[in-house]
Design a protein around this nucleic acid. Structure first.
Ligand SMILES: NC(=O)c1ccc[n+]([C@@H]2O[C@H](COP(=O)([O-])OP(=O)(O)OC[C@H]3O[C@@H](n4cnc5c(N)ncnc54)[C@H](O)[C@@H]3O)[C@@H](O)[C@H]2O)c1
Ligand SMILES: NC(=O)c1ccc[n+]([C@@H]2O[C@H](COP(=O)([O-])OP(=O)(O)OC[C@H]3O[C@@H](n4cnc5c(N)ncnc54)[C@H](O)[C@@H]3O)[C@@H](O)[C@H]2O)c1
Lengths: 280, 280
DNA sequence: CCATCTTTGTGCACGCGTTCACAAAGACAT
DNA sequence: ATGTCTTTGTGAACGCGTGCACAAAGATGG
């Protein structure tokens, strides 16, 4: 869901594969494998030999049936009546996720967030190696962050090729993100983790995942508003909707008026557009 | 607002099983509204008066039919033959997301990541106000970060109550996350954005969203491995998979051997329909 | 006023993902 | 070996999300 390209729906089912026969592992399952892996690693550190699907599911915060079905896509790695062997499952999931090999990554844009990521220990702990830190600002290049020198983006292509980097992390301002993305892709990067609030345009074959703090907060705000609204009804806010809509055009007003018959549509808060400029 | 609205245009006769969601707006739609809002804000800054669903969908990186259906959950805010009024839609989405009001948030754990978030301008730009920065380490409390003093977690409950904070951001080490979460919830926080790689346990009524960099990278690695595996088969890895299994128990090894016979299940490298064309 | 053109709003079908529920598989005791 | 007990693996049903395709709505022009 977070990935830019869905690539799932082929209007032509000519392949004939009806079910999950020749198909790979469902995206939803792949997204949960790291969760299982984390829980299993914790068990492994405590030298727990086996776990049942029920226990592991609880640790991972999912339904046990879902967990079993997820594992069934990987193969039959459990033992009925006993459960799953922790070490073995750690290995299988690691292999399935491609964590048995080394993945060099570059981080582009060593500002506030780039600093934090560079210092993050969780990178190296799972086979992700920071191959380089890149920035366009001459004032920051040369600085040493987390033991690595910040190098200028002029060197991007060379580094990506020589280090065989296939994963890039973008932590530049939004205005530079697409441009940086294009350069990364042109240099050979085929997976991008984007922290900038921008919709990246990439060719087929390139995966983009985005981490957007602002979106997460807004989703929380939506539910928060709903919780608050359920307690005391918004009587005061429902009345004067149409009057205070900011610059509602004729067409839209008509549309609103036609709908004004139904109660509870508007919201009297006059600060309609408080939010001009996004980060820029 | 929920009540008055849902009574109106609901051509669906089977209202019994449907409408399970109290509000009516699907989660998937809610998750996209911030995306639309961002695109609309950009248009608004360029003084674009109206947009068609096609244009806006392109800007937001989604399907136009999906966008129209999403908007249909909010109401009929478009004009056929013309499109949507930008300013009006900005207002409607903002209101729907609850961004017309102020949301004070606290950030707990002012380390690398907490620093970055505190300095992030995108917070305030959408109605999210950092009410306080909290940390348990006496060495960091008292420091001024992004113009705000870091306060000790002893003050957490008092701050949350006095500032009416309902959203908390956790950027502590994973071991402290659950404990911090419990305190936040006990103090009145009902929405949590968790950056620590931990499964948080919360009572009903509390929303948790997680941002997990490690998981995102692992998902990218999975797809990356699949792409690489398509080019040249992973002969070396597939061959000695069993051999390198760390402490694989007898039962599990047998299970693996039995499965190795069937094609297409164990590894996901049989070139499915995803990522077809360009990938090279 | 009528014709045409554009674009919305949505009915519908389809496929993915989730969950239930249970037979089969294996451990373990006797 | 046989029976019992635990837990897996999965068939099947269902709900949700997505995208197609089209009728209706409204703008626009004559
Ligand atoms: N800081 C956060 O907590 C946070 C949260 C969510 C999203 N973001 C997003 O992450 C991005 C980075 O945020 P930040 O706070 O670190 O910003 P920042 O301004 O501190 O850092 C941006 C860095 O990118 C560099 N840069 C600019 N243009 C570049 C280019 N073309 N090539 C390479 N480097 C370039 C700058 O020199 C700077 O060092 C922004 O898009 C922001 O919206 C940040
Ligand atoms: N830095 C990153 O880029 C990054 C990326 C992904 C995830 N994370 C996760 O985010 C969290 C923070 O990462 P970080 O790099 O900022 O770590 P950090 O060690 O730099 O900062 C953690 C901060 O939390 C404070 N803290 C510890 N226990 C606390 C408690 N009980 N109450 C309040 N504050 C407490 C510490 O004093 C410290 O200031 C970690 O869980 C990490 O796994 C970080």
């Amino acid at each position: 869901m977070a990935t830019g390209r869905s690539t799932q729906h082929n209007p032509n089912p000519a392949a004939g594969t009806r079910r999950s026969r020749g198909r790979g592992i469902p995206d939803a399952t792949v997204a949960r494998l790291p969760l299982y892996l984390r829980a299993l690693t914790a068990l492994s550190e405590r030298s727990v030999p086996t776990v049942s699907s029920e226990e592991l599911a609880a640790a991972a915060g999912v339904n046990s049936a879902k967990l079993r079905k997820d594992f069934s896509y990987l193969g039959s790695y459990g033992t009925r009546g006993v459960g799953y062997d922790v070490e073995y499952l750690v290995y299988q999931i690691s292999r399935e996720l491609g964590l048995t090999q080394d993945w060099p990554v570059v981080i582009v844009g060593i500002g506030n967030l780039g600093h934090a990521l560079a210092n993050y220990g969780g990178f190296a702990s799972r086979g992700f190696r920071v191959a380089a830190l890149l920035d366009a600002d001459p004032a920051t290049t040369g600085n040493v962050v987390a033991g690595l020198p910040v190098r200028h983006t002029d060197e991007m292509e060379e580094i990506i090729r020589s280090e065989r980097v296939s994963i890039g992390v973008i932590t530049t301002p939004p205005g530079a993100a697409q441009q940086v993305c294009d350069r990364l892709v042109a240099a050979g990067v085929t997976s991008i983790l984007n922290f900038a609030p921008t919709v990246l345009n990439v060719p087929d074959g390139v995966d983009v995942r985005k981490v957007d703090l602002s979106i997460e907060l807004q989703i929380l705000a939506f539910h928060e508003q709903r919780k608050a609204g359920d307690e005391y009804r918004d009587e005061d806010e429902a009345a004067d909707a149409d009057a205070e809509v900011p610059s509602a055009p004729a067409a839209a007003v008509v549309s609103t008026a036609g709908r004004a018959v139904e109660p509870g549509r508007g919201h009297g808060n006059e600060r309609g557009q408080e939010y001009e400029e996004a980060a820029g």
